[in-house]
């Protein structure tokens, strides 16, 4: 099977997974849910006529299948999530756009940060196997594997927000938000302010996340460096750095790409907690709120976006894998 077949196969799988996720998302919120969606909007003291009118207004009087399901599919696929299930009844889509952007900003930079810190450290450790550097990096890797991300963040908040506040009268880091209030003027100022607000969540995500990447890369580098072709490269006269990067690291690049895909759920998980801890107005914090208030259209919309995000990331890494490793064959990857 060539590249094209492989790509088409992966895309077909992604589409199928997307459909399954859509169905599950509907089932979880509309069929498994022990709560009636109208609990939140319909007062039990209303008259029957009022209740019926409200149900009709929200389209809940029609049968679950196919009417509501088809409408649900149509809405999600067209990025139209309807209205919030609360008093405001505001449209979800505009807020989703804004919050999704914030989440992607956080997730994207944190992922890149973790890669930029973790993988070079892994290469360094792998190339100096058994040295002090190696042992230190293994230790740090194992430690950050065990420590919960939110604990690192709690400590961070405890030191830079609570303690700082009690010692100096004001917290060092911003309490919440993407920009300060009032928002600064000018692009450069805005960027600076956003960076200042993002630095705590991103730093803590990197601190708590880089270790397992470093460890994984290190183990694969150690493995790769014992391969015969590394000796060939050395014998040919390839210089040390080139042996490390162009030969050893190049050969583990495909599994590293897979690692990125496998790490995405963890990063998403981390981001939910991070958002609610640092008051970052992304979709994760929104989701928690929606669950607590049984604002199910919002929860459904967020869950759908998470799934799309993950399916997309998986697809990209699959394609990347195919691009990086000419040996692709179905069933042989990973």
């Amino acid at each position: 099977m060539g590249f094209r077949g492989y790509f088409l196969n992966r895309i077909a799988i992604a589409v199928a997974v997307l459909f399954i996720v859509l169905v599950l998302n509907f089932l979880i919120f509309r069929v498994f849910s022990p709560y009636d969606p109208t609990d939140m909007i319909i007062d039990p003291d209303f008259e029957q006529a009022t209740k019926d009118r409200l149900r009709a207004e929200w389209g809940l009087d029609r049968p679950l299948f196919p009417d509501q399901f088809v409408l649900y599919l149509k809405n999600l696929l067209t990025w139209n999530y309807g209205r919030q299930f609360d008093q405001s009844k505001s449209l979800i889509a505009p807020q989703m756009a804004w919050r999704l952007r914030n989440t992607l900003l956080l997730l994207g930079t944190a992922t890149i940060g973790v890669i930029l810190v973790g993988i070079p450290l892994g290469i360094l450790a792998g190339s100096r196997r058994g040295s002090k550097t190696d042992i230190t990096i293994i230790g740090a890797g194992l430690f950050t594997w065990g420590v919960p991300t939110f604990f690192v963040q709690l400590i961070w908040l405890f030191v830079f927000s609570a303690t700082w506040n009690s010692v100096f009268g004001a917290p060092l880091i911003p309490r919440s938000g993407v920009v300060g209030l009032p928002p600064p003027e000018g692009l450069l100022e805005t960027l600076k302010d956003v960076a200042w607000h993002a630095i705590s969540p991103i730093c803590t995500l990197i601190i708590a996340g880089f270790g397992s990447w470093a460890l994984y890369t290190r183990n694969m580098m150690v493995d790769a460096l014992t391969e015969d072709y590394i000796q060939t490269a050395r014998a040919k006269g390839v210089k040390g750095r080139d042996v490390l990067f162009r030969h050893a690291f190049r050969s583990i690049l495909p599994p590293v790409a897979t690692m990125v895909a496998l790490a995405i759920p963890g990063i998403v998980t981390g981001a939910i907690i991070t958002e609610s801890l640092f008051g970052w107005p992304g979709i994760g914090a929104w989701y928690i709120n929606a669950l607590m208030n049984r604002n199910h259209p919002v929860a459904q919309a967020v869950l759908y976006n998470y799934a799309v995000l993950m399916i997309g990331a998986n697809l990209v890494t699959d394609l990347l894998y195919g691009f990086l490793d000419p040996r692709i064959r179905v069933g042989q990857r990973r």
């Binding site: 015969d228 072709y229 000796q231 060939t232 014998a235 006269g237 030969h247 190049r250 050969s251 040996r327």
Partner: peptide
Amino acid sequence: QKEIRWKKMSVIFQGAMNALHPIQ
């Protein structure tokens, strides 16, 4: 490294195994 190895004397490794880089 520059003038002797591979230039003046080189090696035939066991190619059937892993002496060749798998993705080059």
